[in-house]
């Protein structure tokens, strides 16, 4: 299988990538690790005329501890997130969940920014960023803007990113509560999650429970109101409308959300000590 023809452009810097995007507009796609985009192109489900490769923009690959948050460059690979000592100490949820994405080969290429910008609701890391109350930093022709992750995802493969904007950084506040958990149920180990759940303290992110990554808001409210974990988890599927596919019916997904949220909250509580 061969991707349709396109013209390849390599950006040397984030700035250059933004100016190439401005030049080619809608006809262009950013190529990071390529592990979401190239398979789609080979299946001819995506046919951009230009690919702007940011793979060499090393300035976008970093994990840094800032005063009140952890800053992760958009081009940071899953492999680097998985093995980061800083994340292991400060945001183990992100390190652990990154290690569950795809397979080792995919993690050697796939990037956090690519996954978030792709807007796939079955993808693990966007829901983790959501659960961590992350902020997405985006560069465009008119400068830099910061978007709360809760406002970033619009629908299947749809985000608030404009065609001429580049996701450059993910800012993750240091969590108030140390307890965390990542629960993922798949058919095969390599498959996308049927449902996955990311828990940090009493924040809960849901993977594949709708057209975007979600927060389990009813559960979070119940916890805030003092409900038990069991009772709060029973509300995990409220307000969600998951898809039916070959792996699962919506009813099953809702059931899994309740089970995995309960397990996640219990594990997080155990870790918090």
């Amino acid at each position: 299988m061969i991707p349709p023809k396109f013209a390849y452009r390599r950006a040397g810097s984030a700035e250059e990538a933004v100016s190439l995007l401005a030049e080619y507009g809608d006809e262009a796609k950013i190529l990071a690790g390529g592990h979401s985009l190239l398979p789609l192109m080979k299946l001819r489900l995506a046919q951009p005329e230009f690919l702007i490769d940011i793979g060499r923009v090393h300035e976008l690959s970093y994990i840094r501890g800032e005063a009140d948050h952890i800053a992760v460059g958009a081009l940071t690979r899953y492999h680097d997130l998985e093995h980061s000592e800083l994340l292991a100490a400060e945001l183990p949820l992100l390190a652990h969940a990154s290690g569950k994405v795809g397979d080792p080969q995919v993690r050697h290429r796939g990037t956090i920014g690519g996954s978030i910008a792709h807007g796939e609701s079955a993808s693990d890391v966007p829901a983790v960023v959501l659960a961590l109350d992350g902020t997405l930093v985006v560069s465009g022709p008119s400068g830099v803007r910061e978007i709360p992750s809760s406002e970033f995802f619009l629908g299947p493969f749809e985000t608030v990113l404009e065609p001429d904007e580049l996701l450059t950084e993910i800012r993750l506040p240091r969590p108030a509560s140390p307890g965390w958990s990542f629960q993922k149920l798949t058919s095969r180990a390599i498959d996308w999650a049927i449902v996955a759940v990311a828990v940090q303290g009493s924040s809960v992110g849901l993977v594949n429970m709708g057209s975007t990554p979600l927060r389990a808001t009813a559960t979070e409210r119940a916890l805030a109101d003092g409900a038990s974990i069991t009772d709060a988890a029973a509300r995990a599927a409220e307000g969600t409308s998951p898809f039916a596919d070959r792996n699962a019916s919506p009813e099953y997904r809702k059931h899994l959300a309740r089970v995995l949220v309960r397990r996640g909250l219990e594990e997080a509580a155990g870790r918090a000590g």
Binding site: Y8, L31, G34, D53, P104, Q105, H108
Partner: peptide
């Protein structure tokens, strides 16, 4: 199609030669 790029395994059917 797994090969090593800079010592790490990658799937060479999902990487452009240009990359």
């Amino acid at each position: 199609c797994t090969v090593l790029v800079n010592g790490e395994s990658v799937k060479s059917c999902t990487v452009l030669a240009a990359q």
